[in-house]
Design a protein around this nucleic acid. Structure first.
Length: 218
DNA sequence: CGAATTTGACCTGCGC
DNA sequence: GCGCAGGTCAAATTCG
């Protein structure tokens, strides 16, 4: 999928897959997702590595969660071989979404300085009343900017974990305020506190990706 | 009182 | 070169 006007071509992948496995991350910390109603459980999707799937393979089977339509700028590149270390995905937690086409109207990557290695930028379009999705990570807001061609301001966040430089931008969809466009940049160098991720495999490409998540917090 | 957020200023790159 | 747009900084403010 190519985005007109964007410097980076997005590839659109719809709901994923068939198999969901779980993996518990250490150090549960708050998050409060467990208090969400049954029909409002967190889930996510994103680029993912086979290594994660392998790591998750021994974990307990979990119920399949709805998976958000999502965008990634990996350009369809083949998944890397087993990485040296597990690279946690960038999973937003959000309420259920309706099946809807993902329209990446935000030209992520259009700016040269946005250039980054493939697989380290992900854009999600989610149907949510909440602007800031609790994805299990702790974010520190460092900026807010109104952008051209959009009545909604864009918010800038940085991972507040020391040494982690992951950033995300959040803004309401200009065409439908019921949707929130979240863009992640970078890779966390730490695990999400108290979060279970569900890995799935795209039958078409064979690539693994995050199909869901659940917070283990109290 | 420390941490997080707000918000205007500043910086950088691009297009004309 | 200039103006515009997007991204970041940092002082002020707010919150827990």
């Amino acid at each position: 999928m190519t985005v007109a006007g964007a410097g980076t071509a997005y590839r659109y992948r719809a709901h994923g897959a068939d198999v969901c496995r779980a993996m518990a991350f250490p150090t549960p910390r708050g998050g409060g997702s467990s208090s969400l109603p049954e029909n409002n459980r967190p889930y996510t999707s994103g680029s993912f590595s086979p290594a994660f799937a392998a790591a998750a393979s021994g974990a307990q089977q979990q119920q399949q969660l709805d998976v958000l339509d999502y965008l990634s700028d990996d350009g369809g590149a083949a998944a890397p071989a087993v990485p040296e270390t597990f690279r946690p995905p960038l999973p937003p937690r959000m309420p259920p979404v309706e099946a809807a086409p993902v329209v990446p109207d935000v030209a992520y990557g259009a700016h040269p300085r946005d250039a980054a290695p493939a697989g380290e930028k992900i854009a999600f379009r989610t149907r949510s009343e909440e602007e800031v999705l609790d994805d299990g990570y702790k974010w520190r807001k460092y900026g807010k900017k109104s952008v051209k061609n959009s009545p909604n301001p864009r918010n800038y966040y940085r991972c507040s974990t020391e040494g982690c430089s992951v950033k995300k931008r959040v803004e309401r969809d200009k065409d439908d305020v019921n949707y929130v466009v979240t863009m992640y940049e970078g890779v966390h160098n730490h695990a999400s506190p108290g979060t279970v991720y569900y890995a799935s495999q795209d039958p078409a490409t064979g690539r693994f990706f995050v199909a869901g998540m659940h917070n283990l917090g109290p």
